[in-house]
């Protein structure tokens, strides 16, 4: 009788306390797993940059930039970093800009650069990149083996007739705008 009482009064509570203690000694935890599906594909990235010797681009460092020649004329003052050569019946204004094409997930060592105008230019104006005349009807190859990963300078030129507007020359006093859509294709 004394033994049972002893067990009930002392041992069982002690065991219970011990059990509680052992449960409390280990902090509860929970786990979860998140599966993330990702396929690394292959692709090229083109970024347009201002050239140190060229006109400062709008949105330099993106794939959609703008280049403003400003006022151009055969004999008048030009914007900074715009150069001019005068020909017999035309003059050419030029400025460099940079293209950087990066490659990922692809074992290509070079790319082909081509360009196409978004709209037709007015009479008396042609646009050239690296002396290659561009059109709005087809993409024209500009460079065949460009290397990836560095800023490569290209020369943008506008060849402008010196004839008067209506006589083969361009309109004067109004802004001429077009967009050159460049495409780099991995070789």
């Amino acid at each position: 009788m004394n033994l049972r009482k002893t067990i009930r009064v002392f041992v069982l509570p002690a065991l219970a306390a011990l059990g509680a203690l052992s449960a409390a000694a280990q902090n509860p935890s929970a786990s979860g797993s998140l599966s993330v599906q990702l396929q690394n594909g292959s692709g090229l990235q083109m970024v347009l940059y201002s050239d140190p010797s060229g006109v400062t681009l709008g949105n330099s460092g993106t794939a959609s930039a703008s280049l403003a020649f400003g006022n151009v004329s055969a004999y008048g003052a030009l914007s900074t970093n715009v150069t001019r050569t005068n020909g017999t019946n035309s003059f050419t204004v030029s400025t460099p800009f940079d293209i950087n094409v990066q490659v990922s997930g692809l074992s290509s060592s070079s790319y082909t650069l081509s360009g196409e105008l978004s709209t037709a230019l007015p009479t008396g104006v042609t646009l050239e990149v690296d002396s290659v005349s561009l059109s709005n009807t087809a993409s024209t190859p500009i460079q065949a083996k460009e290397t990836y990963g560095s800023n490569l300078a290209h020369t943008l030129s506008a060849v402008i007739s010196t004839s008067a507007s209506g006589s083969g020359g361009p309109p004067t006093g109004s802004t001429i705008t077009t967009t050159i859509n460049f495409v780099a294709t991995a070789n």
């Binding site: 004067t172 077009t178 967009t179």
Partner: peptide
């Protein structure tokens, strides 16, 4: 595999 970029060009021809 291609990449594209667009450069908008503006110029005003003056007499």
């Amino acid at each position: 595999v291609t990449a594209s970029g667009a450069l908008t060009v503006e110029a005003t021809v003056a007499s």
